[in-house]
Design a binder for these strands. Structure first.
Lengths: 209, 209
DNA sequence: TGAATTCTATAGCGCTCGATACGAAAGGTG
DNA sequence: CACCTTTCGTATCGAGCGCTATAGAATTCA
C-alpha cells in the first residue's frame, strides 16, 4: 500500500507553498487575494496550484485549518494550561497582543480578519462558525470556574466570554490599524479589570472562606 | 448665478440613491459591492451613477461622509452631551450595541467593517484614518476628565481610549456574526467595569472632596 | 528501453469587473 | 418653433478574475 509514488515528482515543497499561501491570505484576505497573487507568492503555476490544493476555496480552507493549529494554537494552550479561566483568558489576550503585532508575518488574526465581506458565503460562514465556536469554548471554561466556585456564582459566563471575544477581535483590528504590541498589551490588561477579581459572591464585603 | 438647471432633469432622487448605495456598501463592504450591485440597488444605470457620483471610490467616500454624520453621529452626541468621559463612552457603547443590531439596516458599523482587506489602498486607509481619529477623540475626552480630577490622575488616557475603541470594533464584528442587542449590551456594560469607577487617586480609601 | 504515470508551462477559456461612447430623450431658452 | 444643455438607455470596452485544455518534461515500473 505504501508503495513509492510514480510519475514526475512535484518540483516544489507543498508545505512551503501552503505557508506562502497562508501569508498572502493573512495579509490581504480571501477576497482580495487573486489566484495569480497566490501563484506568484507560492512560486508555482496555476495548474500546479489546482493539482496540489484544489480550487481557491479549498486552498483557503486548508490554510485556515493549518493556521488554527499553528499560529492560532496559543488560545487553546492558554485555556488548557492555566489554572483558572481568568488566568487563561488573561494570558490569551496578552499573547494575542504580542502575536498580532509580531514581525515576520501579517498583523492581526487570520480567522478574524481574512473573510469579512466575502463574496463566497460559505467561506465567510466557515470563519464565522470558528469564531462562534471559540466563544463557546470561552464560555464553557468560564462556566467551569463558576461551578467550581473559582468565580462568583452570579457571573454571566456567556457575557464574559462574549466580552473577551470582542476584545480579542478589537485587538486584531487595532493591530491591523497600526497599534504597537505595548499599546495592545495595555488594552488586554485593561480588559481584565472587567473580570470579577475572585470569588466574592452575593455578600461582597466579608472575608469569607 | 442661482439660475434654474437646464437640460433634461434627473429622473431619480440623488439622496435616495445615495442611501441605497450606503445600504449596499454597509452590508457587503467596498470590495464585494460591484458597480452592477450598486446600479441595481439604486435603480439607475451605470452612466447615471458615474454622472451623479463620479466613480465607485468617490461614491464610497460620499457614502462614508454621510454615514458619519447620520448613522455614525451617536458617538459625537454622547461625547458632547454627557457630563463625564465615563458616562459618554458608556452611553456610546450601549447605543452601539443597539444600533449595530437594529433592524432596517445592515449590522455592525460601516466605518469599521466596510473596508477591511480592500484592493484600493486609499479607501482602506481613509477608514483607518477615521477610526484612529475616533480613538484620538476618545483620548482627548478622557484626558480632560483626568486633568479636571473627574478621573484618577494615574489613568492612562491613551490606553483607556484604545480599549474602548477595541470593544466598539468587537461589538461591530459580533453584531455581524449574529449577536443580539441584549448580548452586546451586556458586553458594553461589562467593558465599563474596566473603567476606574470615580476619582479615587493615590489615596483610595478616603472620602475626600 | 518502452509504456504508464504524474507534474509543469503556455496559452486561453468564459465571465465579471469598473468605466465609457454614443445617440435618443427631455427639459429650458430664444 | 429651433437651439442648447443635460440625462437617459443601450451596448459595449479593455483588463483581470477563477479556472483548465493541452502538450511536453520527468520519473517509476515492467
Amino acid at each position: 500500500m505504501v508503495t513509492r509514488q510514480r510519475g514526475r515528482p512535484r518540483s516544489f515543497d507543498r508545505l512551503t507553498a501552503l505557508e506562502q499561501a497562508t501569508m498572502t491570505f493573512w495579509e490581504h484576505g480571501y477576497e482580495t487575494t487573486s489566484v495569480s497573487d497566490l501563484t506568484r507568492a507560492m512560486g508555482i503555476s496555476a495548474p500546479s496550484l489546482y493539482a496540489a490544493f484544489g480550487d481557491k476555496k479549498t486552498l483557503f480552507e486548508e490554510v485556515v485549518e493549518t493556521y488554527a493549529v499553528s499560529y492560532g494554537a496559543y488560545g487553546g494552550r492558554a485555556l488548557a494550561e492555566e489554572r483558572s479561566a481568568r488566568e487563561a483568558i488573561g494570558r490569551l489576550l496578552r499573547e494575542a497582543a504580542t502575536l498580532f503585532t509580531e514581525p515576520g508575518h501579517p498583523r492581526g488574526c487570520l480567522m478574524i480578519s481574512a473573510a469579512t465581506n466575502c463574496s463566497t458565503p460559505e467561506v465567510e460562514e466557515a470563519l464565522r462558525t470558528r469564531r462562534n465556536e471559540n466563544l463557546a469554548t470561552f464560555e464553557a471554561r468560564i462556566r467551569r470556574d463558576v461551578e467550581s466556585g473559582d468565580l462568583p456564582p452570579d457571573v454571566d459566563a456567556r457575557a464574559l466570554a462574549r466580552f473577551s471575544g470582542a476584545v480579542l477581535q478589537g485587538l486584531s483590528q487595532q493591530a491591523r490599524d497600526g497599534a504597537t504590541a505595548e499599546e495592545l498589551t495595555v488594552v488586554a490588561e485593561t480588559a481584565m479589570r472587567a473580570w470579577p477579581s475572585a470569588a466574592a459572591p452575593t455578600a461582597p464585603r466579608e472575608e469569607a472562606r
